[in-house]
């Protein structure tokens, strides 16, 4: 029982990370099998046709998309894996056929910016909070040392230097 839970958790984890694990698992039983609408939709969901932009292929009603889904069905019946089918469509339609680009350069372009932005933001935040609390503590220690009404900058500086040396 515990083993099955573990396996389930593992599968869930992998599928959230890659989002394609199910597809590969589905394709592995191979051979000549009946392909259901759900199988077709599983692949189609990951594709975007150039005619209906931003509409996943599994819910697109145009003739072009119906033809493409029939082709996917044929490919599945021929025993192609989900990944192979997706690759065919990426070659034919270009990188826009998938939800996020697969080409390494484009993929880098797309993912690098948000990730760098997040890293920089976190760094900035930490630095800012640090410098704020730093600035807060310093005047608090100095405040009593400087007598109110001391306008003379030179004297202030002198006092500070004396303090620092001591």
């Amino acid at each position: 029982m515990r083993k099955t839970y573990l396996a389930a958790a593992l599968i869930a984890l992998i599928s959230t990370i890659t989002g394609i694990a199910v597809g590969i698992a589905g394709a592995q039983d191979g051979g000549d099998r009946t392909v259901t609408d759900d199988d077709v939709n599983r692949v189609a969901r990951q594709l975007y046709c150039p005619i209906c932009e931003n509409v996943p292929l599994d819910v697109c009603g145009t003739r072009a998309c119906i033809d493409a889904r029939n082709e996917i069905r044929q490919m599945l019946e021929d025993g192609m894996s989900d990944e192979e089918i997706i690759a065919v469509f990426v070659e034919r339609w270009g990188e826009r056929a998938v939800a996020t680009p697969r080409d390494p350069t484009l993929s880098f372009l797309v993912w690098a910016l948000p990730l760098t932005a997040i890293v920089i933001a976190v760094a900035l935040l930490v630095w800012q909070l640090y410098s704020w609390s730093e600035r807060r503590t310093r005047p608090a220690q100095q405040a009593p040392a400087i007598q109110p009404g001391t306008d003379d900058k030179y004297r202030q500086r002198l006092e500070r230097e004396i303090r620092e040396r001591s």
């Binding site: 989002g19 975007y48 150039p50 932009e53 931003n54 996943p56 270009g94 990188e95 826009r96 056929a97 998938v98 939800a99 996020t100 680009p101 080409d103 350069t105 484009l106 372009l109 797309v110 993912w111």
Partner: peptide
């Protein structure tokens, strides 16, 4: 838009991103 400008390639940014 940026991708098309920089690389000439059209891309889709879908829910996974």
């Amino acid at each position: 838009i940026f991708s098309e400008l920089l690389t000439g390639e059209k891309i889709t940014m879908g829910p996974p991103y």
